[in-house]
Amino acid sequence: MTGLAVGERRSARGASRTRTTPRLSRRGRERLAAGLFLAPDVLGLALFVGLPMVVCIVLGFFQVDGFGGYTFIGLDNYRRMFADPLFLGSLKTTLLYLVVLIPGLFVVSLALALLIRQKFPLVGLFRGAFFAPNVISLVVIGLIWKFMLTDQTGFVVRVLGFFGISSPSWLGSPHLALWMVVAVTIWFAMGYYMLIFLAGLQDIPREYYEVATIDGAGVWQQFRHITWPLLKPTSFFILLTSTVSMLTGGIDLIYVMTSGGPANSTSLIIYYIYEQAFVYGEYGYASAIGAFIVAILLVWSVGLFALTRGGRFNDARD
């Protein structure tokens, strides 16, 4: 009897321990699973994005020579930056580049998305053709277009000459080179943003258009009162990501097509940073410019969020 009582007490203690052991709720398990799935991505961002950004900001306060010497100079790199006419020129060129490129890319991508959304023969072929440049390296794209636009021997020059049209120096003129880069960039990137717009269009219920058609609304009225308001979140995403992408990317295209010329007319800020760091060895100065660009992007992102409220509807008129 005594052994039986002892066994019962041990069983009772084990049961009490089992009952008091904390268990995660369903929501807790979901959060844990989400955290485990996100951990590699967060770690990658911290190592390959966050850490280089911190290093860039710190290096902006130093003068760095090519032999690993570091001299703390405080804000001298930033003072030099705003007194550097080449930097100010590249900043002006970059602003002009973005002011033309972003609206042009936005309009062309939206127009293509509206086009391929329609049902007509070989629509899948058109979708693939518009997206095809995105699977080709920017270096290859730059080489192809440089060959096509080369003076006297370029394909475009020869075609225009066949029809008796004299061709200007597309990449050799300071007045035309930047616009050629803009045109090639739009041609390269439009397929990617077209697909994003197409995804946004497909999320709009067809019932809205059917009701509008019954009410007698035309194509323009349907676009103005249905398509455009419901595309605001997608438009916000494209404006934000395209600005960041075009400001920080595209150096391959510039390097291959124009190398910043002629007369620095295509020297965008990202190419100027590359020159200062890897051509002249001014790593501290290049880091200061990079930190300045990061600050501009942060201001742009916060301002865009504030103006559009994250792409949500702004007022009742929407």
Rank of each mutant, 00 (worst) to 15 (best):
Phe61Ser: 14
Phe61Gly: 12
Phe62Asp: 03
Phe62Lys: 02
Gln63Thr: 02
Gln63Tyr: 05
Phe67Leu: 15
Gly68Ser: 08
Gly68Glu: 02
Gly68Ile: 06
Gly69Met: 01
Thr71His: 07
Phe72Met: 05
Phe72Asn: 02
Phe72Gly: 00
Phe72Tyr: 13
Gly74Ala: 09
Gly74Lys: 06
Asp76Thr: 09
Asn77Cys: 01
Asn77Met: 01
Arg79Leu: 00
Arg80Ile: 00
Ala83His: 06
Asp84Thr: 03
Leu86Trp: 02
Leu86Arg: 11
Leu86Cys: 00
Phe87Thr: 02
Phe87Trp: 12
Phe87Glu: 02
Phe87Ser: 00
Gly89Lys: 11
Leu91Gly: 01
Leu91Met: 08
Lys92Glu: 04
Lys92Ala: 10
Lys92Asn: 11
Leu95Ile: 11
Leu95Trp: 05
Leu95Thr: 08
Leu96Met: 12
Leu98Lys: 04
Leu98Ala: 03
Val100Trp: 03
Leu101Arg: 00
Ile102Lys: 09
Ile102Arg: 11
Pro103Ala: 04
Pro103Ser: 03
Pro103Met: 02
Gly104Glu: 08
Gly104Leu: 07
Val107Cys: 06
Val107Thr: 07
Val108Thr: 03
Ser109Asp: 08
Ala111Lys: 06
Leu114Ala: 08
Leu115Lys: 05
Leu115Arg: 04
Arg117Gln: 15
Arg117Trp: 11
Gln118Val: 02
Gln118Ala: 11
Lys119Phe: 13
Phe120Ser: 10
Phe120Pro: 01
Pro121Ile: 00
Leu122Gly: 04
Val123His: 04
Gly124Thr: 14
Leu125Phe: 14
Leu125Cys: 12
Arg127Lys: 07
Gly128Arg: 12
Ala129Glu: 03
Phe130Pro: 05
Phe131Asn: 06
Phe131Met: 04
Phe131Gln: 06
Val135Pro: 11
Ser137Tyr: 02
Leu138Thr: 12
Val139Ser: 07
Ile141Phe: 01
Ile141Pro: 12
Ile141Ala: 04
Gly142Asn: 10
Gly142Met: 05
Gly142Tyr: 09
Gly142His: 09
Gly142Glu: 09
Leu143His: 06
Leu143Trp: 08
Ile144Asp: 10
Lys146Cys: 05
Lys146Val: 10
Phe147Glu: 14
Phe147Thr: 15
Phe147Ser: 15
Met148Pro: 13
Leu149Arg: 04
Leu149Gln: 03
Thr150Glu: 13
Thr150Asp: 14
Gln152Tyr: 06
Thr153Tyr: 07
Thr153Ser: 10
Thr153Ala: 13
Gly154Tyr: 01
Phe155Val: 12
Val157Asn: 15
Val157Lys: 13
Leu160Asn: 12
Leu160Cys: 14
Gly161Arg: 12
Phe162Arg: 15
Gly164Pro: 01
Gly164Trp: 07
Gly164His: 01
Ile165Phe: 08
Ile165Met: 12
Ser166Ile: 15
Ser167Leu: 04
Ser169Trp: 08
Leu171Phe: 08
Gly172Asp: 14
Gly172Thr: 10
Gly172His: 14
Ser173Gly: 07
His175Thr: 14
His175Ala: 14
Ala177Val: 10
Ala177Arg: 09
Leu178Met: 15
Trp179Thr: 07
Trp179Val: 09
Trp179Phe: 13
Val181Ser: 10
Ala183Gly: 15
Thr185Arg: 02
Thr185Lys: 05
Ile186Ala: 10
Trp187Val: 03
Trp187Leu: 05
Ala189Gly: 02
Met190Gln: 14
Gly191His: 08
Gly191Cys: 05
Gly191Lys: 05
Tyr192Gly: 09
Tyr192Trp: 04
Tyr193His: 14
Tyr193Thr: 13
Met194Phe: 09
Phe197Ser: 15
Phe197Trp: 15
